[in-house]
Design a protein around this nucleic acid. Sequence first.
DNA 1: TTTCGTAGAGAACGTGCGTTCTCTCGGCTA
DNA 2: TAGCCGAGAGAACGCACGTTCTCTACGAAA
Lengths: 189, 189
Amino acid sequence: MSTSNVLAEREQIVAAADRLFYTHGIQAVGIDRVRTASGVSLKKLYSLFPSKDALLVAVLRHRTGEWDAGIAEAAAQATDAREKILAIYDFLNEWFRQDDFRGCAFINSFGELGAVSPNVATVARDQKVTFQRYVANLVDEAGAPASLAPQLAILAEGAQTTAAISGTPDAAAHARAAAVVLIDAALSS
Amino acid sequence: MSTSNVLAEREQIVAAADRLFYTHGIQAVGIDRVRTASGVSLKKLYSLFPSKDALLVAVLRHRTGEWDAGIAEAAAQATDAREKILAIYDFLNEWFRQDDFRGCAFINSFGELGAVSPNVATVARDQKVTFQRYVANLVDEAGAPASLAPQLAILAEGAQTTAAISGTPDAAAHARAAAVVLIDAALSS
DNA sequence: TTTCGTAGAGAACGTGCGTTCTCTCGGCTA
DNA sequence: TAGCCGAGAGAACGCACGTTCTCTACGAAA
């Protein structure tokens, strides 16, 4: 029951909260529901996460890790920077087609609590900035001008909200096609 | 006290709720705060809007009208379809730089209540679909292939979330630059 | 075996909010 | 002038949720 068990419990709670928050929204899910789903006592839950806000921050940080890993895995099969960039949109394409897809958790959380919880706003912004840097590195590696990077990042963001609200997973393919045009135009100049 | 006054009261309530919801988030603002801000009795408020959900729908429909008007006004000065498309991003650019900008109200509302309120999800989707059609018409008018339209719409969506979360109003300029490349590439093929 | 500490289970508390109810007052009618 | 209708003001209600408190029971140490 030592450290490893505590970590396992943390992960269980975070995983349960993540699923519930993402599916139903944050304020629509009570702490007690998280407790039931994670099968842990309320006391333990509050000893690990002193508030719902802290739990939410942990959930979002966990999502950041999963997102980074997913992007990296998608890029692993690519050989050059251009393909690694396009792998982002392929990754999005698969994600959008999952049954439980309900948009970007960071965008949703920011929309729901960004004005009320500075912590949530910070975590969401951190995730976006990290992604923008990732894209910027690949653009640099591809030898394209730096101005291309924010354009590609905007395409990825727009695909997520479009897929979520309009319910069109094709948004990933559209974003990918646009990215191809933008990259090739940038490289040929 | 007759019809015109009721309309004025409706507008007052909607305007007050819009500002409060957009600034602080929907669930963070109580009905009583809306009542105070609009200076109307609770009874009248509930006689005009039978529930908070109905009020929110009215607010979002009102926002749809304002968005359409803003886009139309920006396009009014343009001479051809290409410039009308680019006027969208100029409109976004001005909007992002306003002090009270806090992202797209439809994206925020959808993230907060889309999973809980079907009405909110519908209104948000309607707005996005209407905008997509608007872009599609301009793309058609410009003589570009239809596949360009969703790409331009995705750029606009992505610019909004990027500007909101990352706090970078430049997203509008980046999206505009990308749009220029995409349009010209589509027209020259 | 007894005692002490700890952790689990959930009751309880305070608060806030959406919604409804009640009371009162002002104006119109006979 | 007396009675009635409608609307405004806000008190009240019921509920849900975040957080804390209490009680119980079990296991380890002496």
